[in-house]
């Protein structure tokens, strides 16, 4: 237990250090924040623009989609902030900085997770939270203990799933030095996809994000339960409550793959 606490302490220290690093460049700091906010709000603005024209999508109104958008984007922001080191991992392998990490007596996951928490990544939270608040004010949700808990679980499951994807993407750097955008399609494309209800997509695509990379599973089904909307795809309520756990399982599996990658790195040196 003390090992875990100690690791958490070191993790917090890593984060503090990286925030202070960024404060070193005060001049562009505010502008960067504003810019990030604008970029990250883009999709939300797009949602409002489109609902202004079309009124609804697949039977969902703008508030419901904003709710889903909020869950997905907060999940992603949390995951992204916690795994920056993995995001930059390809460069670290090339520059040899990963060797340095291996010469320190701490787990690679801890060191990479605490690598660099940038404000731009935190700024991604803002539109997500704003959308959740906007949705909550208009949807008349029942904030029972079960529903609140499910919301948190859904965000946690989503964050774990995204973090797992980012870790998997980083693991690829052990095999190829080429930056593979393909995994970005899964993360960023996953955000784009799952901020709309999954029933609007073609079946093969829907299945991919339900079973293959279960991003829709951890956000779409729980939000149906919270909003009290019956699933047009016909899933039972208990499934909607348990679905977010899949994300946590996915992260644990990804970390196993990561450990395999580290072992391979240590035997090939590249």
């Amino acid at each position: 237990m003390s090992g875990v606490l100690d690791s958490l302490y070191v993790y917090r220290r890593f984060l503090g250090v990286s925030l202070r690093s960024q404060m070193q460049y005060k001049a562009s700091f505010l502008m960067q924040l504003a810019g990030r906010l604008l970029v990250n709000s883009g999709e939300l603005i797009a949602i409002f623009v489109l609902f202004d024209r079309f009124g609804s999508i697949g039977g969902w109104n703008v508030y419901q989609v904003a709710f889903l958008y909020g869950i997905v984007n907060v999940s992603f922001a949390v995951a992204d902030a916690m795994s920056t080191g993995f995001d930059l991992f390809g460069d670290m392998v090339k520059s040899g900085d990963f060797d340095r990490i291996l010469t320190r007596p701490r787990s690679t996951v801890l060191q990479l997770g605490g690598q660099e928490l940038t404000l731009r990544r935190i700024s991604r939270l803002t539109p997500g939270i704003a959308a959740l608040v906007f949705a909550a004010m208009n949807l008349e949700l029942d904030w029972s203990l079960a529903n609140s808990g499910l919301l948190l679980l859904s965000v946690a499951g989503g964050a774990a799933l995204f973090a797992g994807l980012i870790v998997l993407q980083a693991t690829l750097a052990f095999w190829t030095t080429e930056t593979l955008e393909l995994m970005n399609a899964l993360t960023y494309g996953g955000v784009e996809t799952t901020q709309y209800p999954i029933n609007i997509y073609r079946p093969w695509f829907r299945n991919f994000f339900t079973f293959g990379v279960p991003l829709a599973t951890v956000s779409y089904f729980p939000s149906l339960a919270i909003m009290g909307v019956p699933d047009p795809l016909g899933t039972p309520l208990w499934f909607q409550y348990l679905a977010p756990l899949i994300g946590i399982g996915f992260l644990l599996a990804s970390l196993q793959v990561w450990r395999f990658g580290v072992r391979r790195y240590m035997s090939t040196g590249s």
Binding site: Y25, A27, S28, F29, L30, M31, Q32, A34, G35, R36, L37, L38, V39, S41, G42, R120
Partner: peptide
């Protein structure tokens, strides 16, 4: 501005 990201981000958002 050395970290030039600021202007870039703003422009990119627009």
């Amino acid at each position: 501005t050395i970290a030039g990201d600021g202007v870039m981000q703003l422009t990119f958002g627009l």
